[in-house]
Simulated scan of single mutants.
Amino acid sequence: MSGAPATEVEEAAAVASARRDGFGLGLLGVYGVSFGAVAVASGLSPLQAVVLSVVGFTGGSQFALAGVAAAGGAAVTGVASAWLLGVRNSLYAVRLTDVLPDRAPARTAAAHLVIDETTALAVRHEPHGRAAARAAFWTTGLVLFATWNLTTAVGAFGVQALGDPATLGLDAAAPAAFLALLWPALRRRRTAVLAVLAAAVAAVTSALAPAGIPVLAGGAVALLGLSPRWRA
């Protein structure tokens, strides 16, 4: 049979599929318009909101900082809350060790894109090979970064025209997509039990600890349950 070997054809198809999925998921960055509006309504200037999206690029942390600002909290409190929520991305980076680039410059750039969505889609495409997982990671990250920052600017500079950002409902898009990505894994009994346990720990901790700690506590439970030692 002429043409490329079957394995190469399959790999090319897997990479193409990963890129399509990444592009579609990356478009969810349009809910950055909600952050831009919320940030300005909380007291940040439009320019500050835009810069925060560029350098902070992790929605949960950004909304946490804006929430503290809206409540009149100190800057150090807002930064601490945002940092605690962002620490979860370091756990994702450990999971993506084999997906991220090997060389330092590219690895540093990739680190800025390690967030919920890029991790979820990369892990979902891992069974199809490293190339597919990398394609999913980079496509999701770059498209999401572009749409998030563009729409943050739209929301920040057009906040008066948008009205109450809470009525947009765009903030529900990302969690819904993330759940959809995880759903196949939740069909396995062990994973489902771990998910419920991690969620319960996070819910209980949220009543006792500052923002960020519940996420880390839930993540720690999941990591412990998935470790080779506890699988035995």
Rank of each mutant, 00 (worst) to 15 (best):
126 E>Y: 05
167 T>H: 13
126 E>V: 09
193 V>H: 09
175 P>Y: 09
30 V>M: 14
186 L>A: 14
130 R>I: 02
49 A>E: 13
14 A>Y: 00
72 G>Y: 10
220 A>M: 13
167 T>Y: 02
117 E>D: 09
147 T>D: 06
156 A>C: 07
153 A>T: 11
104 A>N: 09
28 L>S: 15
97 T>A: 14
110 A>V: 12
183 W>V: 12
4 A>H: 05
42 S>I: 04
99 V>S: 04
226 L>H: 11
109 A>D: 06
175 P>K: 11
229 R>C: 01
76 V>N: 02
31 Y>S: 14
113 L>W: 10
160 Q>T: 14
67 G>A: 04
196 V>Q: 03
183 W>C: 08
11 E>P: 03
15 V>R: 11
119 T>W: 12
7 T>P: 00
81 S>I: 02
42 S>N: 09
89 N>G: 05
88 R>M: 11
199 A>C: 02
11 E>D: 15
138 W>R: 06
203 A>R: 13
150 L>C: 08
119 T>K: 09
19 R>F: 01
32 G>W: 12
78 G>R: 07
39 A>I: 13
172 A>Y: 08
184 P>W: 01
75 A>F: 07
162 L>P: 13
69 A>Q: 12
217 A>S: 13
124 R>W: 00
56 G>Y: 01
186 L>Y: 08
157 F>M: 00
185 A>Y: 07
181 L>Y: 04
202 A>C: 02
170 L>I: 09
228 P>I: 03
230 W>E: 01
36 G>S: 06
48 Q>G: 12
143 V>N: 05
51 V>G: 08
93 A>N: 08
104 A>I: 14
208 L>Y: 05
207 A>M: 05
32 G>N: 09
213 I>K: 05
